[in-house]
């Protein structure tokens, strides 16, 4: 087990190096000189050159990268060009909101999606299953900005029970978490159902019924446990992706998370922030995957770490 974790950590480390190089180079491939874009429209060539020098954008690429990595190891992600503040501070301010929203949304998704999926899987092709699957189809196809606006219109404008946007209290979290959760629920419901359907066709389920176990015992103790692996994988991937920030939902609800921040930074060509944010996403995604891998062993003892 320990060897496995070490190996996984090593792989994760290599992935992170890859991410850092990739995010570093990516920005040099896109058109547009940041110094020129940031300067005032009336700036002279000298002023632009001065800005470029001030931000180290005139140094050779490998020097820029070496500086970047050295600073990174010291926990210094550089200064945001747009705000002049440390990138680490900027990220630290937004990351908690993204994590809270991701946890809330994934939890709602898991509860609703898991529940619906189990009912559907237990009674395939029944009326309940058909209705649930149509709903799930709608849930995956409806754009989240549309669904979010409908929720705002109902709960904030019409009934006036929840705030329309912003963050800070639990009431602010409800609508964005619901919007996010519904989308996730739809995916998880479909995954749970198909995964469960695969398992209930297995011989050991027939055996369990033959032993005279009740349906719920068969379903939860024998079927669901074996159906969990793909569900956990999908949930892990979804959760990891949410840690990158839900751009559309954050925009609609004025939620101060990472997604909006990254998009704004891309528009203003805030190099240090884009790098820092991509790196943070990379780390979080890699760690989530690592966690999911380890979770497999807990769920299914047959998985051996060799």
């Amino acid at each position: 087990m320990l060897g496995y974790i070490t190996r996984r950590l090593l792989v994760t480390f290599c992935v992170l190096i890859g991410i850092s190089i990739f995010s570093f180079l990516l920005l040099h491939f896109v058109p547009g000189d940041p110094a020129q874009l940031l300067a005032d429209p009336w700036s002279t060539k000298e002023q632009i050159a001065y800005l470029r020098h001030q931000w180290g954008l005139d140094r050779p690429l490998y020097v820029q990268y070496a500086i970047f990595i050295t600073n990174l190891l010291r926990g210094n992600l550089g200064m945001s060009i747009a705000s002049g503040r440390p990138v680490s501070v900027e990220i630290a301010q937004r990351l908690p909101y993204t994590v809270i929203l991701a946890i809330a949304g994934t939890t709602i998704g898991l509860l609703i999606g898991g529940g619906v999926g189990i009912i559907s899987g237990a009674r395939p092709y029944s009326l309940v299953d058909n209705i649930a699957m149509v709903m799930a189809l709608l849930g995956t196809s409806l754009p989240s900005f549309w669904f979010g606006l409908i929720l705002i219109w109902l709960f904030a404008v019409k009934w006036r029970v929840l705030p329309s946007s912003g963050a800070g209290t639990l009431a602010h979290l409800i609508l964005p978490a619901m919007t996010l959760g519904i989308g996730i629920a739809a995916i998880i419901a479909r995954q749970t159902r198909s995964s469960l359907l695969d398992v209930v066709r297995q011989a050991y389920i027939t055996t369990a019924y033959a032993k005279g176990l009740t349906e719920s015992a068969v379903l939860f103790r024998h079927a669901l446990r074996n159906a969990l692996i793909p569900i956990v994988t999908v949930t892990g991937l979804i959760f990891g992706r949410q840690l990158g920030g839900a751009v559309v939902i954050e925009t609609v609800f004025g939620w101060p998370g990472m997604g909006r921040f990254l998009v704004e930074s891309i528009f203003t060509r805030d190099y240090p922030v884009i790098r820092g944010a991509l790196l943070t996403f990379g780390i979080l995604f890699a760690l989530t995957n690592l966690f999911v891998d380890l979770l497999y062993g807990v769920i299914d003892p047959r998985i051996k770490y060799v």
């Binding site: 606006l149 404008v157 946007s165 912003g166 925009t251 609609v252 004025g254």
Partner: peptide, 18 residues
């Protein structure tokens, strides 16, 4: 002062009195 980047959401906040 609150940032509400989405125009539709900003107008709904106005209509809701937020």
């Amino acid at each position: 002062v609150k940032p509400i980047p989405d125009t539709a959401a900003r107008l709904m906040a106005l209509e809701a009195g937020d």
